[in-house]
Computed example of a mutant assay.
Amino acid sequence: MTPKERLYTRLAGKPVDKIPNMNIMMHIVAREAGVSYREYVQDYRKLVEGNLICAEKYGLDTVSAISDPMREAAAFGAELTFPETTVPYAKKSLISDDWDLSVLKRFDPTESERTLDRIKGCELLRQRVGKDYPVVGWIEGCIAEAADLRGLNELLIDLAMEEERLPELFQIIFEEQKLFAKAQIHAGADIIGVGNAAASLIGPVLYKNYGLEWDKKITEYIHACGAKVKLHICGNITPLLELLREVKADILDIDSMVDFARAARFFEGTGTAVSGNVHPAGVLMQGTAELVEREIKRCMNISSATSLVAAGCEVPLATPEENLLLMDRLLYL
């Protein structure tokens, strides 16, 4: 089976030769491409090169345009710093305490440098892999993007205080989400990852009030554009599982602090496949071969017919190659 056939067959609950390897790699992709992280996040050609190397070397079943959470923030007007070895960040929050939303630039993702770079990445990945691999594009979820624009601590206070301009901000973000997702789909993305990590910090009440409907809307929109959705909320999302079932994402990433067996049972038959939940550092980076084997088999044994296996979040740069190679070998059925 090709990786794309394997993933789509598994999502349909049908037999496959191997449980798809859905590990998220970014720092490792940069290393394999032979470039700094700064170059990786700014040059789609290096991102593509590293993805192709990693897919072949480590048995990944997707290639991805994921790199950092600040693509849209830059397009909105945030001034970024690009460290040599880690993700870019905003020098200061674009939205200050006066809540002047007019500072947000409304942008065409094909004309903003950082969003266009990701679109070109999807296009080149599609050209290079043909029909063999699913191409994963990426956008930020509304809660996560609001945190990028406002500052995480400030946003948490705003949510708790029910800041009256939050719905207006989320609407602006949503309109740009749609444009960015659609552009990546047109460029060749089969799946759009929605990164909404900050949602794991706000609890079910605030998520229901401020995050759920936006995640549902963007999922519905991406589906209408003909692509699948991979929702990534790293952290402990146990309190959110019941609400997340309403989102109807095709794939839901499950981090290592969540009970994977419980999540697999909870989403079985819903159309959402869970993906996880090997501990990225404690198992893949620091674990012995015996521990890696035990944990991979644990995930496989408690999976449903549609479940996928991956580290709960990004695979750390210092992860031994032999652990990654062992993981992929173990996924064959």
Rank of each mutant, 00 (worst) to 15 (best):
A75Q: 04
G235W: 03
R262C: 03
R118T: 13
G188C: 03
S112L: 03
G312P: 09
V278K: 11
A310V: 03
Y58A: 00
R294I: 04
H223W: 02
F82T: 03
A74K: 11
A30Y: 11
V274S: 06
H27Q: 13
E79F: 00
M25L: 14
V63L: 00
L101T: 02
P134C: 06
P109D: 01
D253Y: 05
I53A: 02
A310P: 02
G269A: 12
Y40I: 01
P320L: 10
F267G: 06
G271D: 12
R126D: 04
I157V: 15
E176D: 09
I237K: 02
L166Q: 01
R38H: 14
P134E: 09
V29I: 13
L243T: 02
N301S: 14
E176R: 08
V136I: 13
A318W: 12
I191H: 11
P15E: 14
I191P: 12
V247L: 08
E145P: 04
H279V: 07
D215C: 10
I66C: 04
D98G: 06
E163Q: 13
I254V: 12
A75P: 06
F180A: 01
G211E: 02
S93V: 02
V229Y: 04
L124C: 06
E145H: 05
A249L: 08
K18D: 08
I251Y: 06
C299S: 10
D43H: 14
Y58S: 00
I66H: 09
S200M: 05
M257N: 09
G193L: 15
L125I: 01
E145R: 03
I192W: 09
K120G: 03
N301Q: 11
Y89D: 05
V16S: 10
E175S: 06
